[in-house]
Design a protein around this nucleic acid. Structure first.
Lengths: 159, 159
DNA sequence: CGAATGTCAGCACTACTGAAATCG
DNA sequence: CCGATTTCAGTATTGCTGACATTC
């Protein structure tokens, strides 16, 4: 039998062509790696992605209810609760009952929250720069443009 | 207080600028959506991503040991076991002990496996086309090129 | 002995669902 | 009564780690 002879023992970049042609796979791998890098960078300062996203939404949209934040940050309402608990514990947000609608809370960014956002923003900007390092300025814009188009198309397709 | 007046009730695309500028976020969202689309397409024919990847590796690299497949398909050895069990159950692969090294199994693609791979390949090609629909041929090539560069850079950076 | 291989068990994290309590 | 909001509990999937027996 030729069992041993037919095994390929060589290492290196042996990724099959079939896999290389799959945009899903390339996007998935690259996206996952980006997620890891930025996740690790945020973890290094004791934060997670949701913290940044929620703070950013509050900074740009002003005081909001939790369901508004959930919609804009694309976080589930149920998961948002824990995030807000943590941010509130660090005094980066305030959670006050809305007198006009007693079902809601009004979430407000504090000064500490604004500082924290600036910190996280700087961290992620560093990550951004590191990720985009091999691309020129025009290439970066082009990448954004292409991804944006695909993303819009996918979002319109099935929600 | 102006609690109610400061709330923003308008819906639509309110994604904060800060978030739009994050390549990680755009890639993450787009990649996740691609993953969902292709995952759903594969689930519709009773398969998962790993099935396709493993079959593709076997088709292009020939009979291999499990750890070789794991390396090339970027699947963990531990997770590969279940995948191979399923493929073996459907008679799409054979798992024979390697007489030359009794620690190893030699995994071989069967004819049924080749047929299955062709089927999954067609399914994913459809997904690919659907995802890339809004882009022209040159734009698609450009996207691949840019992503490939970033991916190679990230992979070289930290493994 | 140390290293590789296949296997199993389990952990951590994220996305997601469901339901309850309160209120409009 | 129906619907929205906040909250808690739990599921499911996936990436990943650790341990173990066997064999080189």
């Amino acid at each position: 039998m030729e069992t041993d002879a037919e095994l390929r023992f060589d290492r290196g970049d042996e990724t099959p062509e079939r896999l290389k042609r799959q945009i899903q796979r390339l996007m998935g791998m690259t996206g996952a790696q980006m997620g890891k890098v930025s996740g690790a960078a945020l973890a290094a300062v004791g934060a997670r992605r949701d913290h940044f996203v929620v703070l950013a939404v509050l900074a740009e949209c002003g005081p909001s209810s939790q369901s508004q934040i959930a919609d804009r940050a694309r976080v589930y309402r149920s998961d948002l609760v824990a995030v807000l608990n943590e941010l509130e514990g660090a005094a980066q947000i305030r959670r006050d009952p809305d007198p006009a609608d007693k079902r809601r809370n009004v979430i407000t960014l504090t000064d500490a929250g604004r500082e924290r956002l600036a910190e996280l923003d700087a961290v992620l900007e560093g990550v951004n720069e590191r990720i985009m390092a091999p691309l020129s300025e025009t290439e970066r814009r082009e990448l954004f443009r292409l991804l944006g188009r695909i993303n819009a198309h996918l979002a319109a397709d099935d929600g």
